[in-house]
Amino acid sequence: MFAALRRPCLLAAAVVLTVLGSAPAADAGWVTIQNDTGRVVVVQTTVTSNNQPRRGRPVRLLPGEHVREYHAAAAVQVEVFEGREQDRSLYCGQLALRTDPQAFSIASAGRGVTVTPAGR
C-alpha cells in the first residue's frame, strides 16, 4: 500500500522543488513602467525580433498606475502618448534591458515626459 503512494508523493515533491528552485529565474526579463506624472498617459512598447518590429498593445495608465511586461529582448522601444490624443507622442526611446527585473518611471519634463530607471 505504501509503495503505491510513494511514487506520486515523490513526483509531487519533485514538482514543488522544481517550481521553488526556478522562482528567481521567473522574475528575469520583467519590466515595470510606472506613471509618476499627474496626467493620464498611454504606453506602448515595441520589440524587434528577427528584424521584425512587434508592437505591444497600448496600455492606458492613470497617475500612479503601472504596467508590468515580460521582454526577452536586450532592448525595447517605449512610446508614451497623451492620454486623450494618442496621435501626440510625448516620448519615444529605447530602454536597455538586463536579465533581472527592472522598474522605470515616467516623469513630467516640460510639455513632454521622460522615462528613466526608477529610484534615480
Score class of each variant (00 low, 15 high):
80 V>A: 05
60 R>C: 00
90 L>Y: 03
104 F>L: 09
95 L>S: 12
21 G>V: 07
12 A>W: 00
85 E>N: 05
48 T>Y: 06
86 Q>Y: 00
88 R>N: 04
89 S>M: 08
57 R>S: 07
75 A>D: 07
96 A>R: 11
51 N>D: 14
83 G>T: 00
119 G>I: 05
21 G>R: 06
63 P>F: 00
63 P>Y: 01
60 R>K: 15
111 R>L: 06
20 L>Q: 15
62 L>E: 14
26 A>V: 12
48 T>L: 02
34 Q>C: 15
29 G>A: 13
3 A>G: 01
57 R>T: 02
93 G>M: 13
101 P>C: 04
1 M>I: 07
33 I>K: 01
54 R>M: 11
105 S>K: 10
33 I>M: 09
15 V>M: 14
49 S>F: 04
110 G>F: 01
56 G>N: 04
98 R>Q: 11
88 R>K: 12
47 V>Y: 07
79 E>H: 04
41 V>G: 11
39 R>Y: 00
27 D>Y: 11
51 N>K: 10
25 A>P: 06
67 V>Y: 02
35 N>S: 13
62 L>Q: 14
53 P>G: 10
118 A>T: 15
95 L>P: 09
56 G>T: 03
43 V>T: 11
55 R>G: 01
116 T>K: 14
75 A>F: 06
64 G>V: 10
105 S>W: 14
62 L>C: 03
46 T>N: 08
56 G>R: 01
14 A>K: 10
96 A>G: 11
49 S>H: 05
38 G>A: 14
34 Q>R: 15
62 L>K: 10
52 Q>H: 03
30 W>P: 08
112 G>D: 09
